[in-house]
Amino acid sequence: MKRNEMKIEFDSISDNEAFARVTVAAFMAQMNPSMEEVADVKTAVSEAVTNAIIHGYEGKVHKITITGVIEDALLSLEVADQGVGIRDVKKAMEPLYTSRPELERSGMGFLFMEAFMDEVQVSSRPGEGTIVTMKKMIGQHGE
């Protein structure tokens, strides 16, 4: 089995949203992804990182970590913050639910993560933080 793992840690500032997307895209390049697969993963990463910045840390600067694991054609990503956490994960993942409408959020983040990844799991505890785990099969497009 081909296995490869990486971990990055960075400050929760909005400049790092692009950094996170590009880094994960570079990591998955070895999986021979299609352009669409790269775009899908970038969107999902952007959503999870933006949520950590806006909701998890509420704009304050702390650390976000992304762990990426490649196991053959399976890409697994974990985006973690030690922020405020989520009281009701099921409700948070409902399409169009947002706790911050005043910040022009529209509750589409989890919807996009679920649309573009094969699997999305959220584990969170109020006061301790949130881990979003996402998985996707890559490079399975027949050519």
Partner: peptide, 13 residues
């Protein structure tokens, strides 16, 4: 070439 939910929020706003 890239747009996520923040773009939707911007348009809606």
């Amino acid at each position: 070439v890239f747009c996520d939910s923040s773009g939707i929020g911007m348009l809606m706003g």
